[in-house]
Amino acid sequence: MNAIELYLTLGIAVFLLSLHGLMTLYDPIRRLIAVNLMGAGTFLVMVSLARRSEVPDPVLHALVVTGLVVAISATAFALRLIIAGSKNDKTDSGGGNRKP
């Protein structure tokens, strides 16, 4: 097993491990972290695929960069939502509808 294959396997393992986390965890922050780790696994796979040739494949690098941008902004958005949602849970625990 050469280095690239090792990284590939590692990437897949990270992906699967964090997928398991996503499916079993309940707390939204933890789930968000799990998703981010899935992303890390995916990017690891992509970067190691790019290393297979002598000249690293620029297309895959471009993809990883784009993917990272998307992941960061989405994570920020998700954090904002989760925090706002939990605040709302604390302040408004008894509210309900006017009618059943």
Binding site: T42, L63, A74, L81, I82, G85, D89
Partner: peptide, 29 residues
């Protein structure tokens, strides 16, 4: 505020789904 929770859940699942897709794309490439 009432929709934040389902929205956050939607977002997390949507991100995970995109990563599945992206990993597949990477493998195909």
């Amino acid at each position: 505020p009432k929709a934040y929770k389902p929205a956050a859940n939607y977002l997390i699942l949507s991100l995970a789904a995109s990563l599945f897709y992206l990993l597949g794309v990477a493998l195909l490439y």
